[in-house]
Write a protein that binds this DNA or RNA. Structure first.
Length: 275
DNA sequence: ACGAGCGCCTGTCGGC
DNA sequence: TGCCGACAGGCGCTCG
């Protein structure tokens, strides 16, 4: 489910609280339950519970698609993968069958990691870099300049779409925002990264940023049965719009498969050179 | 270095 | 109605 804008939205609501739901800042973890052991990466349930209990939540932020929750002495890292979500709910609310991890916090609240497909993971580590160390640059940070992005692209010989999905190359993009960014930049997902011109690299970086920022502004996208509350899905240019008209030229949007991922393009706006 | 294929899981949807 | 395949916002692994 979540890509950068959805994770950013979740981090902000856990940090700041929202209507009918407290901020987590300063809250101690009073008890923990592990309902699906494989949700925990590199730690057994008993050790996890012992170690996290009593630690106080210092902050909630994001790096790529990871939620980062610094505690008194360790850091809790959460990756929601395809179907995960972090919910704040009352302790007397019945446990959903998809809850995998539950942390009890004061005043009758709890944090629930809900994840139907069980792909999500949580880490409890002293050093967050041990998990986050290999991530590529943040697309919205100023240190990712056009010059740097251009040389990153030219330094690889890869199809643009799988490259943008590679979290070691750039952090936070997933299937939706990659398709949207490539369409906005009028670049074909199979174009080789070493063939991208400087101007195209500049346009692509600009497109990535504008799509991510609009996603954040709209609090992410809500699709299918995994609903989050954002409404960016109503503003998609190509994603899941197969057969509908391109917003720029009216040509029907095409669906193809790239790296075993459903991929959406406008065949008129996104042309592969020499084809 | 790169891409394809597959495994991990559960749920939904469309076709028959 | 039931069954069956395709598909799903991710990522790590193996194999050429």
């Amino acid at each position: 489910m979540p890509e950068l804008p959805e994770v950013e939205t979740i981090a902000a609501s856990l940090r700041n609280g929202k209507q009918g739901q407290p901020s987590l800042l300063g809250m101690p973890v009073q008890a923990a339950q592990v309902l699906w052991a494989r949700t925990l990466a590199g730690i057994e349930p008993d050790s996890f519970i012992t170690r996290i209990t009593g630690q106080i939540i210092q902050n909630v932020h994001r790096r790529g698609k990871f939620l980062i929750i610094p505690l008194s002495s360790d850091t809790l890292l959460v990756h929601l993968r395809m179907s995960g979500d972090l919910l704040i709910e009352r302790q007397d609310h019945p446990l959903d069958k998809h809850h995998r991890l539950v942390l009890e916090i004061p005043q009758g609240w709890r944090i629930a990691f809900n994840d139907a497909r069980k792909f999500g993971r949580a880490w409890l580590v002293a050093e967050p870099q041990s998990v986050l160390g290999a991530l590529g640059p943040e697309p919205l940070e100023d240190d990712l300049t056009v010059d740097r992005f251009f040389s990153m692209l030219r330094g690889k010989r890869r199809q643009l779409k799988p490259l943008l999905l590679d979290q070691k190359f750039i952090a936070g993009l997933g299937n939706i925002y990659t398709d949207e960014s490539l369409n906005l930049a009028r670049l074909h997902p199979l174009l080789n990264s070493e063939q991208v011109s400087f101007d195209q690299a500049a346009l692509l970086l600009d497109s990535i940023r504008s799509v991510l920022q609009e996603g954040i502004r709209r609090q992410g996208a809500s699709i299918d049965w995994v609903y989050r509350g954002g409404d960016f899905q109503n503003y998609f240019r190509v994603y899941q719009r197969t057969g509908l008209g391109c917003l720029s030229c009216g040509t029907p949007v095409q669906r193809l498969s790239v790296g075993q991922r459903g991929t959406h393009i406008c065949p008129s706006c996104q042309v592969l050179p020499g084809h």
